[in-house]
Every structure is written in structure tokens, then in C-alpha cells.
């Protein structure tokens, strides 16, 4: 599944200072859908190079990290249960720094 992931607000520093990642993530074995929970696990394993605690807390993002799925706050689409589709754009922005 082709996805575009964007990291901002400092989160890009955790993945080699690359802001935009075009990635290919597939649903786990036996699943036909990919949801945000799976994606977060995948990001943590494959993209985050350092200090994963700045990005994740438990199996969700750390509070203060904003998640937009196709420009829409993921709290509307069910947060971790949000189902992702081909060519979706997922944005992570940290609001924890500066002002």
C-alpha cells in the first residue's frame, strides 16, 4: 500500500531529518486492512531512528503529537482504528516545542 508520511514540528529529526517519506506498507499477515495502529508500529520499527519515546507513548503517539490523515484530524476518524487506504497522506506534527 502506497502511503505518504510527513513529519513536522521536530519529529523529522527522529527519522534522519527527512520530512516526507513515500512508503509502501502492507497489512499484516491474515489482515486485509491496514489501520493506524499497524502503521504506527511500522513507523516505529522502520522510520524512527532515535528516541522513539519522543514519538510514541504506549501503542499510540505521544500526547501533543498531532496526527492528520488526509488533512483530517485523526480523532475524527477513530484514531488508532482509522483504516488507511491506498495513496493516503498521514501527517505527524509535534506541538511540544517552542512557540
Amino acid at each position: 500500500m502506497q502511503l505518504t508520511l510527513e513529519f513536522g514540528g521536530g519529529l523529522e529529526l527522529l527519522c534522519d531529518s527527512v520530512k516526507i517519506h513515500k512508503v509502501n506498507v502492507n497489512p499484516q499477515d491474515g489482515e486485509d486492512k491496514l489501520n493506524m495502529k499497524d502503521l504506527l508500529a511500522w513507523v516505529r520499527t522502520n522510520l524512527i531512528k532515535e528516541r522513539p519515546e519522543m514519538f510514541m507513548k504506549g501503542d499510540s503517539v505521544r500526547p501533543g503529537v498531532l496526527v492528520l490523515v488526509n488533512d483530517c484530524d485523526w480523532e475524527l476518524s477513530g484514531q488508532l482504528d482509522t483504516t488507511l487506504e491506498e495513496k493516503d497522506v498521514v501527517v505527524f506534527i509535534s506541538t511540544l516545542h517552542g512557540g
Binding site: 513536522g8 514540528g9 500526547p63 501533543g64 509535534s94
Partner: peptide, 25 residues
């Protein structure tokens, strides 16, 4: 975005950080 992602390089930030995280929680 780059800029504010860059914390002040001199800032130590002890319990303000805790308070901030508490509020986000």
C-alpha cells in the same frame, strides 16, 4: 517548522517539560 522544532540550544527545561507533557496528556 524546522525552527521551532529546534529547541533553544541552551534551554535545559526541567519541570516545565513535565507540566507541558501533563497538559498534553
Amino acid at each position: 517548522l524546522d525552527y521551532f522544532s529546534t529547541e533553544c540550544i541552551y534551554s535545559p527545561n526541567a519541570y516545565r517539560g513535565f507540566a507541558r507533557e501533563f497538559i498534553k496528556d
